[in-house]
């Protein structure tokens, strides 16, 4: 499967090791913004850096266009520079060109969440794949009951989308709680792991859809905490990560028990993978 060419339209350094790229589709060397992009919240793209390699990166932009029947113009990707490819990606500038395959994979349960309370729990860079879902929930706010975003990260300096989080926190129709694992000095926010936020917020456990994304340990303890509150495992959705080469179920790398994270995931309903989730070295 051949990548399509996209041009970097904007680069934003989010934290010391994370950055956001906005990518516009090209055609014959020209940008074609009008063409737009289409994806569902929770999906990912394979981003190719010329000669360096290709990596799966979740899409973190807004899937719902401002105007009806207009596609969002760009792919937005927030990435943490951890490997060869993502570090090279971190050096891209406005105007640079990269390859994009996708979007791939399953999406967050937008339909199932209608009429329910929504609890989103994000850990670290795990906020990036959840952001499109939040955009969409907010753009159709009347379809949902309470919306809660619980976000935990390492330290105040590691907080992603800081300005946006502040705007969201100011809203009356959205509850946002941020916590960090370690803090000093000027931080007046919460300190403690993200799971400690769960007992502090109010939602109706029997009519709640929970969306979780973060490191696996964080997701395991979050599920435990949600279950303590009475949220059913069929109403808990998690986004998984594994080694991925092809993104279309051929390379075999992303197998997780009987599933392929690339085409059956990355978003899974918890009860459908619970037998494998938490087992060692699956």
């Amino acid at each position: 499967m051949l990548p399509d060419l996209y041009r970097v339209q904007r680069v934003r350094q989010e934290t010391h090791d994370t950055f956001t790229l906005e990518l516009e589709p090209m055609s014959g060397g020209q940008q074609v913004a009008a063409k737009g992009v289409s994806f569902a919240a929770g999906q990912f793209n394979m981003l190719y850096i010329f000669g360096v390699g290709e990596v799966p990166i979740s899409i973190s932009g807004n899937p719902t266009p401002r105007k009806v029947r207009v596609s969002p113009p760009r792919f937005v990707h927030t990435t943490r520079a951890v490997g060869t490819v993502t570090k090279a990606m971190g050096k891209l500038k406005r105007g640079d060109v990269l390859g994009v395959r996708g979007p791939f994979g399953s999406h967050w349960p937008m339909e199932e969440a209608v009429g329910k309370d929504i609890v989103m729990v994000a850990g670290g860079i795990g906020l990036a794949p959840l952001r499109p879902a939040l955009y969409q929930f907010l753009s159709q706010r009347e379809n949902y009951n309470r919306i809660i975003l619980l976000y935990g990260t390492r330290s105040p300096a590691d907080i992603l989308y800081r300005r946006e989080l502040e705007q969201w926190r100011a809203r009356f129709d959205l509850e946002v709680q941020v916590t960090v694992d370690q803090a000093m000095g000027a931080w007046h926010g919460n300190v403690g792991v993200v799971t400690t936020l769960i007992p502090r917020v109010s939602f109706d456990p029997l009519r709640t859809i929970a969306l979780i994304c973060g490191p696996e340990i964080m997701m395991r303890f979050t599920i435990l905490e949600l279950q303590k509150r009475g949220v059913g495992k069929e109403n808990i959705f998690i986004s998984m990560e594994r080694n991925m080469k092809c993104a279309i179920g051929f390379c075999g790398h992303c197998q997780f028990g009987p599933t392929f994270i690339c085409k059956d995931g990355p978003v899974f309903r918890y009860d459908r993978i619970q037998e494998w989730f938490g087992k060692r070295e699956i």
Binding site: G123, G124, T153, R154, D181, G192, T195, G214, I217, F221
Partner: peptide, 10 residues
């Protein structure tokens, strides 16, 4: 919670 915090999972 403290044990989790010690893991520095992020």
């Amino acid at each position: 919670a403290t044990r989790l915090q010690l893991l520095d999972i992020y």
